[in-house]
Amino acid sequence: MTAPSQHASSIHCESLTVRYPGDFLALTDVSLEIPSGEILSLVGPSGCGKTTLLRLIAGLESPTAGSVVAQPAIRGELGEIAFVFQQPTLLSWRSALQNVALPLELLAKQPMARPLGRRERLQAAERALVSVGLKDAMHKYPRQLSGGMKMRVSIARALVTNPRVLLLDEPFAALDEMLRDQLGEMLLELWREQRFTAVMVTHNISESVLLSHRIAILDGGQLKETFENPLSWPRGEMMRATTEFGEFYRHVSSTLRKV
């Protein structure tokens, strides 16, 4: 178990059901407790409801039944929740710096007593870009960046508001194995600094074992199993070679094959 974070929010999902038109049940009675400062991975076959659950937590969709409650409450208008999509979703007409500063421009309310000025927004964006190792690419446009760099910008943009909750929808799925590992480590490093609560959808079991405190398996819109990750902290790439990693990996993998 992770120690509760001062800054993060815990998330309480209570009997979530989502029924789409045509009587398709995307989620059925899913209840899940995510303590503050925890990294939870959602795994399961395609179409099992992982992304739907993530979108419900983000407030992008409303459940047919059930509720999502965060403690302390998450206010999107203050940038307390952030979303990293599978694609970097960068605005092509903005530089990396301007893309990262975007959330601070969009917030309906400012977390400070006074609204952040343009200079302050860009300074905050610069710090976020430095934290993901992109100091030298600040003024480049998305077309001038590689896939991995774009995803780093996307993560910096998500973290620029210092969110309580970070939601990630297969953030590294479009990247090659080496980049995927590098960005996973970077995410762990950022989590160590900021201690946000994170929920990550992934198809990659190895990634979920390395990065998360717990792994939840969904299938057919139902929560099948939740595993406490026995691996110790701090974690790093070297951990993949350990017996504990291999055992837990096989355990999750075999459960996933059975569903």
Binding site: I81, F85, Q87, T89, L91, W93, E105
Partner: peptide
């Protein structure tokens, strides 16, 4: 508009005007 990009603006509760100014108009050039 791409769904994910629209969702990005919704996550930050960007109002109609901010979405028009910062996303829709530049996308439509």
């Amino acid at each position: 508009l791409d769904r994910d990009t629209s969702d990005l603006f919704r996550v930050y509760v960007a109002g109609r005007w901010k979405t028009l100014r910062s996303l829709q108009i530049p996308s439509a050039v």
